[in-house]
Amino acid sequence: MTDHDLLWRAARRVADDPFFLASALLAFAAAEGLDDDGLALHLGCGTDQLPALLLCRRPRGEAQMFRAGVHRIADRFGLDPAHLGRIIRTADALAAFSGAAMDGPGGMLAAARDRPAPEQPRAAPPAVESPDSTPGTRRPGVGDE
């Protein structure tokens, strides 16, 4: 296994750990149906840079601290900080919405059980992660087009 493969393996292994940026970016990619190339394209970096980016610490704290963290990462990887910040916040929202919506009585899972399955898959925005949209899942996405 090359060092690059090792980095990828590390990034996948910490995908569920909120300490690492991988938790946000891979969740976002899964929700958006982006594969690795698609995520890199969306972020504006090369695919080979992705594992190192994923292994950064996830920016945290209130607005100013969060912005500073996003800028440090964006500067290092040559990314647009505003875009990166939006992606992380989207991932946060997805996680919060997913947690609130999927869990507990009256949540979306419960609601879904009361409804027949739709005949056509909806082309809705990525509001909720599907059960198979685990981080790291490779699915065709915009990067493949």
Binding site: A10, A52, R57, R72
Partner: peptide
């Protein structure tokens, strides 16, 4: 708490 330090740590020492 430098956000890029964990990445540097991994890149430097994993291999």
């Amino acid at each position: 708490g430098d956000e890029t330090a964990p990445s540097d740590l991994a890149r430097a020492y994993l291999g």
